[in-house]
Design a protein around this nucleic acid. Structure first.
Lengths: 204, 204
DNA sequence: TGCTAACCTGAGCAATCGCTCGGTTTTACT
DNA sequence: AGTAAAACCGAGCGATTGCTCAGGTTAGCA
């Protein structure tokens, strides 16, 4: 059990950057198509069209490759999810929350297969750091919005409330994307979720 | 990717039942101590004090062993979590919910290490069936309680509300046990959680 | 043009894996 | 006591794994 999964060397030329990217992309593809157990260093190198030796130039081991795959997915997700937010400044709180949920949901849906593979199979050690980071970003956004809302929102138990809100949103959307329940209508669910969060954060 | 992980043979004599149990227990131990990748059939057999041939008498492969480990954990958890419930009949709704949360939390805490190992490392395929089942049990209990509460509770969007409740409770408790947040007081968190659930289910 | 550092190659090793199979021992039942 | 079924054994096979290493190729710069 290592703790540093960072790439052991950063590519400096365009050629090597392409090699590096090809490896990460091949890793992602194999992860989706064959699961974590199917991601073997030999196979990744072959899929990337690169020699096994090159792979070990940049990555310490198999784990480091997967770590990088997860890192990129998490980063792309956070960027997509944050992009529509600035346009919401000053909007009413219920509309803002609903839009935020929609943004998160579509960011998740657009990388559903990869999310599923990561969630299903990748050891916690490799995915947890990035999950934590994404959480921290969302929490920060939520708190910023909180402050902007000023006296519209409740002030007590701020830590607990934001923890629960982020937990609920994360779990609900994840389940909605990866394991959609049969007896629940997604749109109604989002409506209900929005109402609950609004009422929770800004009780009238 | 198989879909049937059930044991290939059920032990009929006391001796073989002991063998079977030893294998499952060794599997659980190795899962906790070395993670999913550390659970190898040779190693499990050795740890169980049983020959590798015996292991394959009862289990089709490595996955089947882990599946059984998860099954037992989920079963034990559900039993522990349901045990204190009958005593709550007729209690006020907020007290009932709080006690239910406490029961769930302590059932989780008492098998923390195993839960962590399962959640961290075990492929979704092997853990999802049991997770689903535990969910279904909790939902059934929740709905039974719902009906018992009669006109105290709201009737619209029942599916959506119970989905959100179970999602929130599950995610919150899991996180509380496996990855306790630093800036949140567990007791206050449970208080807030109880209040939210009560308000959702039985708005005054 | 030549030199150095960056980059790439792939045969193949040592270790380990899941799993088989031929055979022995124990149990239940007559 | 005899017998068949149940249970157990473990050496070892074939396949695969993660990874090394000694040497070739390309890019950047003087």
């Amino acid at each position: 059990m290592r703790s540093d999964y960072e790439p052991k060397k950063v590519p400096k030329q365009a050629r090597s950057r392409a090699t590096f990217d090809a490896i990460v992309e091949a890793g992602a593809r194999l992860l989706v198509e064959r699961g974590y157990a199917g991601v073997t260093t030999n196979h990744v190198a072959e899929t990337a069209g690169v020699s096994i030796g090159s792979l070990y130039e940049y990555f310490a081991d198999k784990e480091a490759v997967v770590y990088e795959v997860v890192r990129r997915a998490a980063q792309g997700f956070s960027e997509d999810a944050a992009r529509p937010l600035p346009a919401l400044e000053g909007a009413p709180i219920d509309e803002g929350i609903r839009r935020w949920l929609d943004a998160l949901l579509s960011a998740m849906r657009s990388r559903e297969a990869l999310l599923r593979a990561i969630d299903s199979d990748v050891p916690l050690e490799l995915r947890e750091p990035h999950r934590r980071q994404a959480w921290a970003r969302h929490l920060a956004l939520a708190r910023a919005a909180y402050r902007m809302a000023g006296d519209q929102v409740r002030q007590d138990r701020e830590n607990e409330v934001s923890f629960l809100v982020v937990t609920l949103v994360d779990a609900t959307l994840t389940r909605l994307v990866l394991d959609p329940p049969r007896d629940v209508c997604p749109d109604t669910l989002l409506d209900e979720l929005t109402e609950r969060v609004v009422e929770w954060v800004a009780p009238s």
